[in-house]
Design a protein around this nucleic acid. Structure first.
Length: 293
DNA sequence: AAAAAATTCAACCGCTTATTT
DNA sequence: AAAATAAGCGGTTGAATTTTT
């Protein structure tokens, strides 16, 4: 019934490969009796106690002990048998959290997992890799990305427009003060760069709107909502959380060049200095965004 | 209908960090 | 204080399953 798998056999005395229901039972029983931890003693203590030895379910001479290394036992418990694990698919809400926290912390799966009760680091890691890893972005994340960029653009073009208007206003007033009743056509020529930029962004924006991906996006990707609300738009939050690390575990690269976009897009390290969200950092980010687009 | 390709995810490995002896 | 042992972490693997051709 088992051991039909290519890799189900023994190596150095320890069984390896997929766990059987029987093995699970032994491990669960072990934890019930001895608690979590001391995994190396599982093999010694399972199935050898008087209750199990005399249990008629085990034929005489059959070694009922669990022939698994401590490491394997711990893994099985932590990732699969623990009763507080949440089974079933990752919910859209959870996905949203994963995306956000990964943007913040990179591949620190166990850190991310702490914010997702009932989910293991392994599970989250798998989820991330299968859904958001470079090369094969799912349709969902593709849409999410588009939305993210769109929001950024909307914001920027609004900013630019406002800037241009302010500037124009200022110049007009200045001119009024300087020499009284003069022309007003000059103002347009003096802010061509900004208005042009703003116009370009409006055009890009409209292009995106034509594609009309919002409805689909919302249906599939909750991140759309979080984009506006949390860390990615609030440098204060992001930099505060980001600075909390950097003490010891810094050898983890935040975003090894092969994962795409999000890490570098959302992680504001090195872009935002002391919580300031100025135009330069914005356009820097914008450039990064465009590079991926 | 079946073969091939793609995806999923449980479990492994090697390494680092923490705890115990 | 340091060596040994245990726990924890993240990357990788590959059998099983699902999807595509």
């Amino acid at each position: 019934m088992e051991a039909q798998f290519g890799w189900g056999r023994e190596e150095g005395g320890w069984r390896k490969g997929p766990w059987t229901a029987q093995e699970d039972k032994l491990l669960v029983e072990y934890v019930r009796q001895h608690g979590e931890g001391r995994w190396n003693s599982v093999a010694k203590l399972t199935g050898t106690g008087p209750t199990l030895v005399t249990n008629p379910r085990f034929s005489p001479g059959f070694d009922a002990g669990l022939k698994r290394s401590g490491k394997s036992c711990r893994l099985r418990w932590v990732n699969y048998l623990r009763p507080d694990l949440k089974r079933g698919k990752i919910t859209p809400q959870e996905e949203s959290v994963i995306l956000e926290l990964h943007a913040l912390w990179g591949n620190r799966w166990s850190t991310i997992a702490r914010s997702l009760p009932g989910r293991t680091d392994n599970e989250i890691k798998n989820y991330w890799r299968t859904h958001f890893k470079k090369g094969k972005p799912s349709k969902n994340i593709e849409r999410a990305r588009a939305r993210f960029l769109k929001q950024r653009r909307e914001m920027q073009s609004r900013q630019l427009l406002q800037q241009g208007q302010d500037q124009l206003h200022q110049q007009q007033q200045q001119r009024h003060a300087d020499h009284d009743g003069d022309d007003e056509a000059v103002g347009e020529a003096s802010t061509p760069a900004i208005s042009l930029l703003a116009q370009q962004h409006e055009e890009e924006l409209q292009l995106l709107q034509q594609q009309d991906m919002d409805d689909l996006l919302f249906q599939f990707c909750p991140m759309a909502a979080s984009c506006t609300s949390s860390s990615c738009l609030l440098p204060g939050v992001a930099s505060a959380s980001a600075s909390e690390e950097g003490t010891s575990g810094d050898h983890h690269q935040l975003d090894g060049g092969d994962t795409w976009g999000w890490g570098s897009l959302w992680n504001l390290d090195g872009v935002v200095d002391d919580g300031g969200w100025d135009d330069t950092s914005f356009s820097l980010l914008q450039d990064q965004a465009l590079a991926f687009y």
